[in-house]
Design a protein around this nucleic acid. Sequence first.
DNA 1: CCGGACGCCTGTCGGC
DNA 2: TGCCGACAGGCGTCCG
Length: 283
Amino acid sequence: MDAISIIPIIGMPELPEVETTLRGIKPYLLGQDIRELRVRERRLRYPIPEDTEKVLAGQRIQAVNRRGKYLLVKLGYGNLIIHLGMSGSIRIVPSTSAPNRHDHLDLVMAEGLSLRYRDPRRFGLFLWTPDPVEHHPLVRNLGPEPLGNGFNGAYLHELSRGRSTPVKNFIMDSKVVVGVGNIYANEALFLARLNPNLPADSLSHPICQTLAEAIRLVLNAAIEAGGTSLRDFVREDGNPGYFTPNLKIYGRHGKPCCNCGTVILRVKIGQRSSFFCPKCQPQ
DNA sequence: CCGGACGCCTGTCGGC
DNA sequence: TGCCGACAGGCGTCCG
């Protein structure tokens, strides 16, 4: 593996960004032996336990996967659970490169590259567990993958019966479906032409089908955009670049709707900024 | 069980 | 220029 192949991975972590990160780091991790874990800041969402270094040293990485917004690294003994929180990012860097202020840990591999974890706000997590990862409380109760088989209109319709919560909160609930954060919730609802405040149980079966399809479409488009831009972010300085996904509604309050020209509104729903076109997404 | 509020952190931006 | 509040893409936890 040559030193040029440093890939700064972007970290605007909703599902597409985590998926992009996964695809970027996987080739560099699979089959690698961990030389050591260097922790500079233990205080993430949960403090990194003191014995983590000892447990990880000498282990071989057997698989790297994603579940919702969690990255799961399967080791010879146990698993690593990694979450990027609000501001986390992961890059593969030469083990000799100097960390920046918020680069909280390096997973140093035997062949000269390290996985470097950065997270200014420290809402993310990096935890080792001896158990099968699907047993871990953080992962155990997660809803289906939006891009997998268990997620469709019938599922959304059935689960939403008796739920008065706004549909936007509903689709951002990780017990309902994983990976839909604030940006893509807004985008999917715009695409489905649904007002974010509609009670979840007011949606008919066909509307739920439209919504499920919109969620899949928006996430797939973002993954493709991330995959494309990944090439553009190959740089040697290691600064994580940021690409802007094509957003039609998120952050566009005060601007004209791209469908009809009506001014886009912003409201708070569940303490999160929500954007919608009052004409395309009527109450 | 459900829905809503809160807090964990640092960084940035707009207004005065 | 500096200060101050608002806000930021997540999510576990607590309370009614």
